[in-house]
Each structure stands twice: as C-alpha cells, then as structure tokens.
Design a protein around this nucleic acid. Structure first.
Lengths: 339, 339
DNA sequence: TTGAAAGCGCTAACAC
DNA sequence: GTGTTAGCGCTTTCAA
C-alpha cells in the first residue's frame, strides 16, 4: 500500500539507516545525500509509520486530554476551546491528542480511560476539576501530568491556570474607578480555588483603594456558579436589605443570573447598579446591556498546557511549574460612572 | 517498564503465540490454557501495545474525526456532542478517535490533517459541511469516509443524517393541529440540504392537510441560519404585510431571532403568533416563552456514524448506506391553540 | 491444541 | 558519512 522506508532507500540508492538518519535530522549526513533522500521522500509521498517508530522509540507520539463529560459538553465552549488550543499546538509538534471524557462520579471501580491502561499516550492533560481518584490512578502509573484550569489541593503538579487574582483585582478596580465603593461580590462555592482567587482579587482591590471589606455585601455560599445561583445570590443580597451600587460576579453565568433578577425587579442597569462578570462567555455579549467582564484566552491556555507537557517529556523541567495566563478587562455597557 | 507478551507467556508457561491466540479469542485454545493465560494477564495487569499490534496488522485502531473550526467551537455544542457520541462508541470497540479541525477556507494548498498524510487512521468521519476539496483529497487517498450531518452533492457516501423531512413535517403538523393555517416558514440558504429538507417537510405537511402553499409566507433567501438572520427574516415578512398566526423556523437560532423581533414589536407570544424551531438547542429552553422545537439526538448521531465506519472497516457494507436518525417533537409554551 | 519462527517498519548501536 | 544488523512487541503461517 503506502511506501516504506525501504522504498525510499531503494529510490535514493542508500541504506534504510541513512533514510532514518535524514528523517531524524542527523547532522552527519552530507548535504548531497540528504537532498537525494528528501527528493525520494517527496516523490514517493512517504511518511514514516508511527506505529513502527513508536515500537522502537517506546514513545507513542500521543497525548491524552481528559475532562469530565459535563464540563466538555457545556454550552459555553470553554474546555472545547482549550482543547482546540492544545490540539493546534500538538499538530505543530507532531503529536496527536486523544480526547476522552470521564464521568464526574469517577471512582474506585470506574474504568480508567483505555489510553492510560494501554499506555498509549506519553502524557496526560487534565482539563478542569477532575475527581481526585483519577489523578491518583494516573500518577500511580507514572504518566506525566499537566493540569489546565484546575489544580488539585493534595499535591503539586505542573499547571496552566487563569490569573484569577489579577482578574478579580482588575474587575473590582474597574468598578472603583467608576466611583463605586459599595461593591457586592457574588460567588459560588468559595472552596473552589478559582472562585477563591477571584474573591481574593476583590479583597485586595478594596484594600488597595482603602475601601473596607463588608462581608454583608458578599455571597459566597452558593453552589456551582450557574445562572440560577446568580439569581438566588441577588435574592439573598436584597433580603439582607444591604445597599450597593455595583456587583462583581465571580463569573458571567452568575452575572447573567443577577442581571435577570435585577431586570425582573425593574432596576435599571447600569444606571442604578453596575455589574461586571468574569470569563467573557458568548452570552455576555448578546445580553442587554452587554456585560463588562474579564476575558480569558482559552486557546492560549490549551497551547500553554501542551508546551508544559512538552517540557516534561523532553525533561527540560526541573520543578512542577505553574503558568498563569493573563486576563484582560473587557469594557461594555453594564458599568456606569457614579459620583 | 510495563509487561509484554513475553512476560505473560513466561508466567503462564506457554509460548507467546498462545498468549496472542487467547488475546484474539481464538476458539482452538483449550479452556484450561485460556484460563491460565488470562490469569497471568490479570496478575501482570497486561495490555497489548497498540503500536506493536498495528505494525503487523496494518491497522492503526484510530479513526479521524474532522469538522471545521467554526462548527466545532460554536457555543451550541452540536458537533461536540456528536463527537462525544462517536468517541463513546469507539471506546466500546477499542478504537481511538483523533479529532482535528480544519479551516472552512480549506483549499488546494492547505495542509491536510496530519493523520491523513501519515495514514495514521483507518477511516475518517466528517462532521458537518466541509469543503469539497477536503473530501476529494481524502477519497483520493482511498481512506474510508463517513459523513455525519452533511452529505456532499457530488458523490455518494455513507452518511448519518437527521431525518429533516420528517422533522419539518412534524413541526408544521403540530402548528396545524393547533388550528393554524397561515404558517410562515423562515429558513436560511435553501441550497443547504438540511434546510431544503425541512422546507420539504413543511410543504408536505401543508399538502397533507390541504393547506395551500403561499410562497409569500416563506423566507428562504437568508444566509446562514443565525439569530440575526431570523430577526431579518421576520422583518421581511412584516414588510410584505402578510398575515400569519404561526412560524416554523428552520432552526432554533432563527426562531430565537424571530422571537426577538416579535418581542421588540410587542407582539405577544404565543397568543398572537405561535412559533416552533428545530434542533433543540439549550437556549431554546431558557428563553421566554420556552420554544417548542424538534429534538435531535446528537450523541446518537455520533454513535451511528462510528457504527457505519465499523461496518465499512469490517467490509460488512455493500453499498454506501444512509442512516436517518429520528427526531422528536418537543412541546413547550411557544405554541397556542387557536380556533 | 500449542510452539517456532518469520516479519511488520522503523531506530540505534556499531562497523567500516 | 553511510551501511549492517539486532531488535521493539506483536500476529500469523506452518509444523508438530
């Protein structure tokens, strides 16, 4: 069927070893021979068989990418975009990505992804929060691991994370610079590291601008930060009877929920209350008014996580390194200047 | 590192050939030997190396999955879900899926996905509309091909498609059964096969219930069926001054655009105008009123497309076969009974 | 019913 | 600089 290294060797009048050396950019090959070989490769449209390569080199050229089902099939393509970034970068480095999802209820007796059992990957990228058990099983098998958008609390791994603290700071600062001082924070479960960091950024911004932190203006006991919980969080704030002129929501979903609540209450936005979210999901743009938010470059996160993996595989890395990807403030109409 | 077939053979006191036969479910192996071998496999936690297998069997155990970038990273996870269905089914059959995206502007001198150049897949699944050129390049390389949610006009391939005609019929019928006779159809580019079929279903339903087709009630010259085009299509209908009590939109995005237009015009839905979409996207549920629609099981489409591929690979297929996946009517509050 | 051995396509150690 | 050759881990004849 398709040509092998033998065909190339024959056509270029060299041994298969020489072809292999050319393929692997060995500098000892003379320019003349290299050219002949490359020409033969070109003419035959030859591509080395990965299986054969992998068999001897003991490397598969594959990287596994794992996320939980619910994360990956969410309607906001957050992890999808991270994946695409990873795949894109992998292409450039002649790697393939094997993507699989796992149940969020992964446990002791769940099946591990087949590519880890079969050791058909050289390393694994874990995207988003995944069950501890999975992490343990993979580390037990000594497969290199890189986290993206999550880092487990119980150990120290290389990871690509959003610069949540800076993001939280920027969001809060933007409100402050527009004259706001009574700024509410609504967040999901504060134990989630991302949320915690955003909250941290919020607190630091307040402190930096000499505004006292008022815990009555914060809601951090909601569950997963989804639209309906944003709605509920607003309900709580109103029930407390607190007054405020601005809201920093820990993500756009909660901001959207808050917006919905305020609209139902017929509170004009941003005239009465300004609001800013986090993530820059697509829906944030099409809502009225369009939501100011903190943008995260998802593809970039994917790219960085692949690069981190590559460093590990080429053992250029000494210590588990963390990469924080920068965030950008996106100004839209949901924030008003007050005085 | 991890055990090989030799280790298993040694432990079970058999030759590696015997282990291989057990692995491949060869019936000639005695129960006793099989058990011994299986026990050794279990104890050693042995998994055969795919690379070694592939080298001799000349099969990679990989299936390529290609969609255009824009399709795959859309905020409605339509193709993502198809992919997940495919991947899920592939797992059960010990295949891996290699996912890659291509630019919608793929052309003569674009790079083919590396797995087709390297022949690192046994077959390819193409999801959604892809450039003709890509299809030609793949067929030229004689790689088995299965289409899902699209079929090119210029040739005959195995494909998994939505039963669009039945869907269009059901949607229209639902409106008719609620007493509507003046039913508008708004669609995107009618040359897209899916849209054309839905329009076909619409026409058949009208005919079946003896309602005359009124082309003034149809808009089929919009571009891609997106929200803003749904809005524009409604604008056109209103500009024409036609009267109607119901709308069948060729997909939910257009229905959402239409809804937006009607809301701005302060036309109460469903009291004045009923509306039904197609696809059952997530946004259709969270809009007010929730949109009646035609549901498509995306995972099922993915599963079916993998099965089709498997049939080809095991050459159980004589002719390019088409699979139509069924659709279901989802009743929500956007349709009112009139009399 | 099981084993011996050839060979899939490639890399890498070692000759020359 | 280039060639020879031994395997990588597995499947698959062919013998026994």
């Amino acid at each position: 069927v398709s040509p092998t290294i033998k065909d190339v060797a024959k056509r270029a009048n060299v041994s298969i070893a020489t072809v292999s050396l050319v393929l692997n950019h060995n500098p000892k090959i003379s320019a003349e021979t290299r050219h002949r070989v490359l020409k033969a490769i070109e003419e035959l449209n030859y591509y080395p068989r990965r299986a054969a390569r992998g068999l001897v080199s003991q490397r598969t050229g594959n990287i596994g990418f794992i996320a939980t089902e619910d994360h990956f099939s969410r309607s906001e393509p957050f992890y999808t975009k991270i994946f695409l970034g990873t795949e894109f970068e992998a292409r450039d480095h002649e790697y393939y990505i094997l993507l699989t999802t796992i149940s969020p209820e992964f446990s002791q007796n769940s099946n591990l992804p087949r590519f880890v059992l079969e050791r058909n990957v050289d390393g694994i990228i874990l995207a988003g929060k995944v069950p501890d058990k999975l992490v343990q099983e993979i580390t037990r098998r000594k497969l290199p691991l890189v986290f993206v958008d999550y880092h487990p609390p119980f150990d120290n791994f290389p990871a690509v994370l959003i610069d949540n603290i800076t993001g939280g700071f920027k969001a809060t600062e933007e409100l402050i610079k527009n004259g706001h001082t009574k700024i509410a924070f609504i967040g999901g479960d504060i134990r989630h590291p991302s949320i915690e960091d955003r909250f941290q950024g919020y607190k630091r911004a307040l402190e930096h601008y000499n505004i006292a932190l008022d815990m009555n203006l914060t809601v951090v006991d909601e569950d997963y930060p989804a639209i309906k919980n944003g709605y509920r969080a607003m309900q709580k704030l109103f029930d407390r009877g607190e007054r405020f002129t601005a809201i920093f929501a820990c993500n756009d979903a909660m901001a959207l929920g808050a917006l919905k609540f305020l609209k139902e209450k017929r509170i004009p936005i941003p005239e009465e209350i300004s609001i800013i979210g986090f993530d820059d999901v697509e829906a944030a743009l099409s809502v009225d008014p369009p939501l100011s938010t903190i943008r995260v470059n998802k593809e970039e996160m994917g790219i960085q996580s692949f690069r981190l993996m590559l460093e590990i595989l080429e053992s250029r890395m000494n210590m588990p390194r963390k990469v924080l990807v920068p965030v950008a403030l996106i100004r839209r109409r949901s924030i008003a200047l007050i005085d």
